[in-house]
Amino acid sequence: MNNPFRVLAVPFFASGFAALIYQVAWQRLLFVALGVDIESVTIIVSTFMLGLGIGALAGGRLSDKLPDRTLELFFTAEFLIGIFGLASPHLIGYVGTLTIDEPRIIIAGANFLLLLLPTTMMGATLPILVAYMVRSNGNVGLSIGGLYFINTLGASLGALSVGFLLFYYFDLYIVIYLAATINLLVSAFILASFKLRSL
């Protein structure tokens, strides 16, 4: 593969697009359970970040242990995010109902555990793909700069679309299902493009 960036650019852009849809939409769902005060916002942001952090650490290490299966890891991450996305509206609602009478720390912990899977997967994708590219071009800054650029650009479009378009046409659940569909399409694209079995 001479230039993996060309193949990765579109799916990683789409992945960033879906991620920001989740962030905004899940935040709205969690507000119902947690409230809309500053404490709730902080809990939600920290939960997201903590999951991304764990994913970041895990992604690089996995990539080193399985250097020849990087794209399978990316496929798995996107597929799992998509599957979780489909179930997420009901899961978040269920956990919210289950923990409504619990102290705030228990509610925060339960939601953290719930979102741990998708946020870890989201956090893992960047180091996985950067490591993959560095093995081709030998330049960390060039690889991470390029991938981060395309992923964040997708995220930006996701943020803009949610507030200025998607919420005008669809309700929260449909918007989340849309993001899940994008993740599943990305995983299908990776599967098809790289013919996983031969990698």
Binding site: G53, A56, L57, A58, G59, G60, R61, L62, S63, D64, P67, L126, P127, I128, V130, A131, V134, R135, G138, N139, V140, I144
Partner: peptide, 15 residues
């Protein structure tokens, strides 16, 4: 930039 720990070193800084 080289070796078998590329991913780990990247993810440490990213973390």
């Amino acid at each position: 930039r080289t070796g078998t720990k590329i991913g780990t070193s990247i993810s440490n800084v990213y973390f």
